[in-house]
Nucleic acid binder design. Structure first.
Lengths: 151, 151
DNA sequence: TATTGTTATACTCTATAACTATA
DNA sequence: TATAGTTATAGAGTATAACAATA
């Protein structure tokens, strides 16, 4: 792709910076997680399931901020790898209860470890204090940002 | 989409934070730029052309970090709105020289003003110092990050 | 009637491969 | 032979609409 060093007119733009920081992290994440057979989105699903014990597909989608139709294929993939199990809820038979298998728990532990190491490397150009500052700033933008809790 | 508040297990992950900060800024950007008839990528092209006077499509693509095949449609769109002009380079007739029209310069000024205001609003949850800190941190990740100047 | 999961479909963004004209 | 622009195409990732089962 013959990538130049990005010019100052771009690197002073928040949109450019967020996009390219995101793209670069996505690459590193893919590289780090590949040996564990999951991608970043799948790992996020595992994390949410681990935190909540079990969830319906819709509830999991809500936590992750993705559409329920997107969740179907995600769970299909994770179930295919035997990292999660689906079963019909006996209380409300419209719902699928999704939970980690024991293989899923092991995989989660290993993949999370790889992710943490990848994040450390990614943040290596920054001091420890600057890294923490960055994460805190992003968190307040994402959590308290414009127009939360709509639609 | 019935979006819950994101749980702590996600908001402590750099990947989640960068992705959602990026997505949210993209939305705000679209909203802010819509009245000016350009999107964020198109505006970035105008900015790069303004900074360099004129560029070949390939050189512009290099500055922006996008593929030359992607650039074609981008320039098509901008040319259709009469914001840029293409002409064959007399020195190397394989190249298209792309430059801003005077309409393009005016549009650039107005859209940039809207973008700056949007960024201010987006960063409003942060103090002035934290905002500057954030931009500086992102810049060093994007510019000095892992595996620069490859491919 | 409304909700959950599902499927079919479409849209956006992007890249790869192959063509053309030029060098 | 290599490069710049173009076109066709394909692959992610995501969403909307419509349907079946269930409430």
């Amino acid at each position: 792709m013959t990538r130049d060093a990005p010019p100052e007119v771009l690197t002073s733009r928040l949109g450019y910076l967020l996009k390219h920081a995101y793209l670069r992290l996505t690459e590193e994440s893919a590289r780090a997680l590949a040996p564990h057979g999951v991608d970043g989105r799948e790992l996020a699903v595992l994390v949410v399931l681990d935190a909540h014990g079990e969830l319906s597909q819709l509830d999991a989608a809500g936590k992750l901020g993705i559409d329920r139709t997107t969740m179907v294929a995600l769970i299909d993939a994770l179930e295919g790898k035997e990292l999660v199990e689906r079963r019909r809820s006996p209380r409300d038979r419209r719902k699928n209860i999704v939970q980690l298998t024991s293989t899923g728990r092991d995989r989660l532990r290993d993949a999370e470890s790889a992710r943490r190491e990848m994040e450390r490397d990614f943040l290596a150009p920054l001091s420890r204090a600057d890294s923490e500052h960055l994460v805190r700033a992003l968190k307040s933008l994402v959590v308290n940002g414009p127009s939360r809790s709509e639609s």
